[in-house]
Write a protein that binds this DNA or RNA. Structure first.
Lengths: 338, 338
DNA sequence: TAAATCTACGAAACCGGTTTCGTAAATAAA
DNA sequence: TTTATTTACGAAACCGGTTTCGTAGATTTA
């Protein structure tokens, strides 16, 4: 009973390979009685068809790739749940690839997708990614790509994003309304489209309130936590220290709190903070953290649904569809009045 | 230049399929000159062999499965990084499957692995899993399984765990040394081996200090955060309220802090807390959180390395190997003296 | 009753590679 | 010079399914 394949079934049933195959796939060509016999034996022998042999003919693996910068980030880990939820009922399997924020890593991964290992790709690009040719090359091979969150704006592929500029605008305006006048913006990349969008929202908010955009208040952070600590510390030690911070990425939450602790700066008294974050523990921080909460689950789910739709219907129209799911500003203690 | 396959290459080069295939795989049968010609055209045409066609013959997909209860948990998301690190240099791909703590989900997922979709499995069982037959069935089909963290103790498969009992013992002893006398234990399952181990460590510590193990102090939490909030709240509203808590799972951190906030209980004054957790933000909580930090990255990496070793060398000996990587008690504010 | 149509199945091609085995030509050994 | 051995390659089987196409026999239609 080892290695039950369709041949063994056919032999036992004294039927041809093709009849067994068709019976199992419920073809109209096969009589009800035969189907029943085949199914019974298949069940008894616990027959499970080889996934890749099946896929060879149709050139479909039922695997989809999810390419992420990292997974130890609540946005992406929640997004994965959304993707899974959308994809599982359709029988697709999720292969996760981590770029670790490296362009070279990302390019190597995408290259591998030309092997037919996956039917389609959900992509959130690395911080380093400025070029588009690696993605374009994949698309040229007719592997469908759907971007989510970190998109490459210029490519003609479907995109699922949140309202980055508006959210940053809201966050900044909120800080302004709380009395802040020297607001800093912490980014992680000058290239990443969503970072630029967020920065633009921040700038626009300042402009709309007749405040100057000061280069000294715009910081691009690194991957290294220690380095970021120093950068933020320096920022908050300045003579004209910022009284408000918009942090564009979850990771920086820890850094800002740590620096404030070390410098004995009081939040929200001395500095107010709003952070793009999906951290559940935002509520239990002291002070609790005001966040721009991104619709991580929905974004993952929506992007995955779009990909599945493309895979199933081959709807190659509307390549440039762009879904925007709004984020939410959740005001908590870190931007409070006191 | 669409769909470059080995046939097209052979035709262009006026060679046979087999010669091209062998040339690309650097077979000794092929002359250096021919290899060069083949490689040159393959490079020019950007030929990438179909992954699954290749795997069909050798019955190897170069995919490995990682089966997890969830991914929005820092232990598992860090573990994934470890797995990736171990597996990528060997050319394996990581497919992630989420059970969402459901036994049925887990069983369905493992069933699918009989299709040859993956070469091997890294498994951390769901909270509900008490039976072992679904895993045994897979192993009977000679799909290698390596357990990590949440193991099924009775199965003859390699296991990578941390020293759960000892860690809980250490955590409890630590609380005792800080003056606690009524220590509660928060678990998430009565079945999960690691939970039982942790509870056992807790009990042993009490016994060794001539303290009774009180059933009223042992709580099994649910999946539902709201429900857990109520449970913990009730616990901390008791007349003889616990003065120390060992929480066996990261998720409960938020709950305990929230309840303390609502009940205006002071940590560590009124209650001290130690939590099994890999949260980076442990340091910025108020008070900062004393943790049992598990070696998540190392555990994932080690388990993956073992699996790869089995896959590559077919070392089917030492099925019962058991690697224990110790956790670390990091004392911070939540179990402080004050 | 003859012709047309269905029904149910099997043979064989196919997906895209890998590997075994056979062999002509070149080279080395006797 | 003859025989043994290597070298370099091609034909074909194979991995495990799916699908096209052909057809015998039963059934329906004219």
């Amino acid at each position: 009973m080892k290695n039950v394949n369709i041949r063994a079934l056919a032999r036992e049933l004294k039927l041809s390979l093709s009849t067994v195959s068709k019976a199992l796939r419920d073809s109209y060509e096969i009589s009800a009685a035969t189907k029943e016999r085949v199914r019974a034996l298949a069940a008894e022998w616990n027959y499970i068809p080889n996934a890749y042999a099946s896929s060879l003919r149709g050139r479909k693996s039922k695997n989809i790739a999810v390419v992420l910068p990292e997974v130890a980030d609540s946005f992406f880990s929640i997004a994965i749940n959304g993707i899974e939820a959308a994809v599982k009922p359709k029988g697709y399997h999720v292969i996760i690839y981590l770029t670790h924020e490296s362009y070279d890593g990302e390019a190597a991964i995408l290259k591998d997708f030309q092997s037919g290992r996956v039917d389609g790709v959900l992509l959130s690009v690395s911080r380093e990614t400025t070029r588009t040719d690696h993605v374009q090359e994949l698309m040229d091979k007719e592997v469908p790509v759907v971007f989510f969150d970190r998109v490459l704006e210029t490519l003609a592929a479907p995109k699922v994003v949140t309202d980055d500029a508006e959210s940053a605008y809201k966050a900044t305006t909120h800080l302004l309304s709380q009395g802040c006048r020297e607001i800093a913006y912490l980014g992680i990349s000058e290239d990443l489209y969503i970072c630029r969008q967020r920065m633009e929202g921040y700038r626009q908010a300042l402009r709309d309130h007749q405040l100057p955009v000061q280069p000294r208040n715009i910081l691009t952070c690194a991957a290294d936590a220690t380095r970021n600590f120093q950068l933020v510390k320096k920022l908050l030690q300045r003579a004209n220290r910022p009284d408000g911070i918009v942090a564009s990425v979850e990771k920086l939450t820890t850094t800002v709190y740590q620096v404030c602790q070390q410098l004995q700066l009081h939040m929200p008294g001395d500095v107010k903070l709003v952070c793009f974050s999906n951290l559940e523990i935002a509520t239990i921080l002291q002070p609790s953290l005001t966040t721009i909460t991104q619709p991580a689950f929905e974004m993952g789910k929506t992007a995955a649904e779009m990909l599945v739709k493309i895979l199933e219907k081959k709807v190659l129209t509307e390549k440039d569809i762009r879904v925007v799911i709004p984020s939410e500003l959740v005001v908590r203690g870190s931007s409070g009045v006191k």
